[in-house]
Design a protein around this nucleic acid. Structure first.
Length: 465
DNA sequence: AGTGCCGCCTGATGGC
DNA sequence: TGCCATCAGGCGGCAC
């Protein structure tokens, strides 16, 4: 839907190209009642013979200023559009409100999803009554650091959600919120209270910069937004993150991630957008018997806190809601003394591929949230090392500041497994998909652990992490 | 009070 | 091919 830059372009077009501010309304047709807030009859009758004097903007709202102190406050929501047409052009399917003018033209409000709303108010008080009374300053207005601190640093909710809150700063929607987070190198999940004063000032200057650029490029046309019927915006090709899931970050090359924050799709770079509520995280990954636990021990000696993923996985399985969900998928599963029969589960999943996929995704999600919770509890300023076999599949690389990948010669791996368990074939089969070749380039450091512990530690000394 | 989730609508897209 | 689920530039209201 239109955000501030798109609304700005629409208003410009209606004023300067369609010359709407020279026109007088003679009749209004309301074809979908819910579009009009308040009395539909009042809306229709009061607008007769009113002249459009000016069109202005507040955040994402369009304000038509009319003669006799009337104003129409209009919000396009997701799909609203205004077109000016000649009277002889027939209405189309989603034309909801038609303003007929005395010069044989009409302003058509078209809205496929019917979310848009408009209300007729008075020039004298329209800013002090809803909906505009609840709308905060645009990024371009004077915003004091005290105002930002009060509205961001006292909140435990995600930066992304704060940026979308129109009562704090208006005009920023889902596209530009993601772009601002990228530009300021802040993870959209960061709770407001972890943002520094500098972060807050950066957010405002970044918002000004990005929205100005977007205005100058005519806004972003992703699907349906058009300045006019045959005129698209051009900023979409300049977007750094929005609509670029899995594509390489333009700053560091790491594949961009898409998650959902409060029900809104959110795309960001997990490596160069820092979550300030979290400690520095070094993630270790590599195949079975590659020596991850030795490397883990090395970093614990260096003062890192070790996050034991095995334990956390057990915790996920012990969670009552998780168990309930698993039991929904597999009713025959037994839960003994609060513990899931994981051997039965494993065997069941070998024969039920679809269930395996669903369950894995569900468990990864649980693991992801629990790890986030644990890292938040440790908090910023600390250093954490975590050994994650399925780092990329579980998306736990979202939390990693640095990734250390350990490689091993397959023959030596087999030897070590034989010594450990006496059955290397089974383990190799079970752990086949720990990571893909293409994941190697996601790592910051790659080491080979084909020799002894002394050589391994020497190699780690040289990394200077 | 602060937060999370659902409903409002239609159409495009992708998986089976 | 169709059928079904999911997703989309937003926001208000409701329940805890």
């Amino acid at each position: 839907m239109p955000e501030l830059p798109e609304v700005n372009n629409i208003i410009n077009y209606l004023k300067n190209h369609e010359h709407l501010t020279t026109k007088t309304i003679c009749k209004v047709d309301v074809l979908y009642d819910y579009t009009i807030e308040g009395s539909k009859d009042y809306f229709i009758n009061a607008l007769k013979n009113k002249r459009i004097l000016d069109i202005t903007q507040k955040g994402k709202y369009i304000i038509f200023h009319l003669s006799d102190d009337l104003v129409i406050v209009s919000h396009l929501r997701m799909e609203g559009k205004y077109f000016v047409k000649n009277e002889d052009v027939e209405n189309t399917k989603h034309d909801l409100v038609i303003f007929h003018f005395t010069d044989n033209t009409k302003l058509v409000y078209n809205d496929t999803r019917k979310f848009g709303r408009m209300i007729l108010l008075n020039e004298k008080n329209y800013l002090s009554v809803p909906p505009l009374s609840k709308v905060g300053p645009e990024p371009f207005e004077n915003i004091s650091i005290a105002y930002l601190k009060e509205n961001y640093q006292t909140k435990n909710i995600a930066l992304k959600q704060l940026l979308l809150d129109q009562s704090i700063i208006s005009g920023i929607g889902n596209i530009y919120a993601d772009e601002i987070c990228f530009d300021t190198k802040l993870n959209p999940r960061t709770p407001g209270k972890f943002l520094s004063d500098d972060d807050l000032l950066n957010i405002v200057s970044s918002a000004r910069k990005i929205l100005t650029l977007a205005i100058n490029f005519g806004g972003s046309t992703i699907k349906t937004y058009h300045i006019a019927e045959d005129k698209e915006g051009n900023y979409q090709s300049h977007l750094n993150v929005y609509n670029r899931e899995n594509q390489p970050c333009k700053r560091c090359g790491y594949p961009l991630r898409k998650i959902f924050l409060n029900g809104r799709g959110t795309t960001f770079c997990p490596r160069c957008q820092v979550d300030k509520s979290l400690p520095f995280v070094l993630a270790l990954t590599g195949p079975i018997a590659s020596g991850k636990s030795s490397v883990n021990a090395y970093f614990v000696k260096q003062g890192f806190i070790s996050l034991d993923l095995d334990n956390i996985v057990h915790e996920v399985y012990k969670d009552k809601t998780v168990q309930k969900e698993i039991k929904n998928i597999i009713p025959s599963l037994k839960i003994v003394e609060g513990n899931i029969d994981r051997l039965y589960l494993k065997q069941y999943l070998i024969n039920h591929k679809a269930a395996k996929n669903d369950l894995e995704n569900y468990l990864y999600e649980g693991l992801y949230n629990l790890v986030l919770k644990k890292l938040r509890k440790i908090g910023p300023g600390k250093k954490v090392v975590m050994d994650v076999p399925l780092l990329f599949k579980s998306h736990l690389d979202d939390f990693a500041n640095k990734i250390l990948l350990i490689q091993i010669n397959p023959n030596i791996q087999r030897e070590r497994l034989e010594k450990r368990s006496g059955n290397s074939d089974l383990y190799l089969k079970l752990n086949k998909s720990y990571f893909e070749q293409e994941d190697i380039k996601k790592a910051d450091f790659v080491i080979s652990n084909n020799s002894n512990l002394e050589d391994l530690y020497k190699e780690l000394d040289n990394l200077n992490i």
